[in-house]
């Protein structure tokens, strides 16, 4: 039984955790755009997480996790030396990378994590990579320095203006194009609403591209169909046909509503955990 021990961990931003985890086979095989499914313990869910990068030599993969509910809050408490019970992967199709020329990568929030390996791969394929990284505010912005290392130019923006330009990634994109830069291809990853709006603007500006979708998944191997998404009017299984799809063709509104399917149960799960911890006197909240 391979043990997926956590070698190091760090807090990148409020409620965003970075882990380097032992998974030698995956570290060797992973390609940009692929993900893993992890289970923390025997009662746990199967949780899809993008492989943010890997270190084949040391047999480690890097996962960046944002607290979204019960499982990810629990994950945020894992410490160095703790382990994941199961890690399956690499799953999904690797990003289709060509030499497009001028590329614009747009990240929203924690989407900067899954986008990073794709940016690296696109750059290695000879593209000129530009990036826009947006976050609600400075304390939620992640990986900006790493982008700076891999991109020809990076622009930051935030809703409150605490970092970079005050405004949304879509404003930033329009601005950049209005300066006369022509982008041949876009890569957009972030919250679904952000991807919907950015894809809309990219289409308006005539920039084709890819988005990476995060539907609810169970097995991640094409066996259950929980991850169905509609792309250009056709049903696709995101875990095996994606997770990346044609930005212009995705039915984002359907995805938004499908991702809300378990809101009530997710709240019950979280409340049960918090309740239980209050009773046994554990501190609640995020790990230090």
């Amino acid at each position: 039984m391979p043990q997926h021990v956590i070698h190091s961990r760090r807090i990148l931003a409020e409620k965003v955790h970075e882990f380097w985890v032992e998974a030698p086979l995956i570290a060797r095989k992973r390609k940009a755009g692929q993900f893993v499914i992890v289970r923390m313990n025997d009662r746990g869910e199967r949780i899809p997480l993008t492989i943010a990068s890997g270190d084949a030599e040391r047999g480690l993969i890097r996962l960046i996790v944002q607290e979204a509910g019960k499982s990810t809050i629990e994950m945020g408490r894992l410490q160095v030396g703790d382990f994941f019970l199961d890690i399956a992967g690499p799953l999904g199709r690797p990003t289709h990378i060509e030499t497009w020329g001028n590329l614009i990568a747009v990240a929203g929030g924690v989407g900067a994590a899954p986008l990073l390996p794709i940016v690296e791969a696109a750059r290695a394929a000879g593209n000129r990579v530009h990036a826009i990284i947006g976050a609600r505010s400075e304390n939620l912005m992640i990986l900006a320095e790493e982008y700076a290392r891999h991109c020809h130019e990076v622009r930051l923006c935030s809703d409150d203006g605490s970092v970079g330009i005050k405004g949304l990634v879509t404003d930033c994109l329009r601005q950049w194009v209005s300066e006369g830069v022509q982008f041949n291809q876009s890569l957009i990853i972030g919250p679904v609403i952000m991807m919907r709006e950015t894809a809309k603007v990219a289409k308006e500006l005539g920039i084709p591209g890819q988005v990476s979708l995060n539907p609810i998944m169970i097995d991640g191997t094409g066996m259950c169909g929980a991850c169905r998404v509609s792309v250009n009017g056709k049903t696709k299984f995101a875990c095996v046909d994606g997770p990346e799809f044609d930005a212009w063709g995705v039915n984002f509104d359907e995805l938004i509503l499908r991702n809300r399917a378990y809101l009530r149960q997710e709240k019950i799960a979280l409340d049960t955990m918090m309740d239980h911890e209050c009773k046994i006197g554990l501190a609640t909240g995020v790990a230090q």
Binding site: R46, C224, A226, S230, Y262
Partner: peptide, 29 residues
């Protein structure tokens, strides 16, 4: 693709493999 439509595989996997019949003791709902 409406919310509430399952494949039998998803339904049975949630219930059997993932333990949804014992939610919230098990995480999968």
């Amino acid at each position: 693709n409406l919310v509430g439509v399952y494949s039998a595989n998803e339904y049975l996997t949630r219930a059997n493999l993932m333990g949804a019949m014992r939610f919230p003791e098990y995480d999968t709902p």
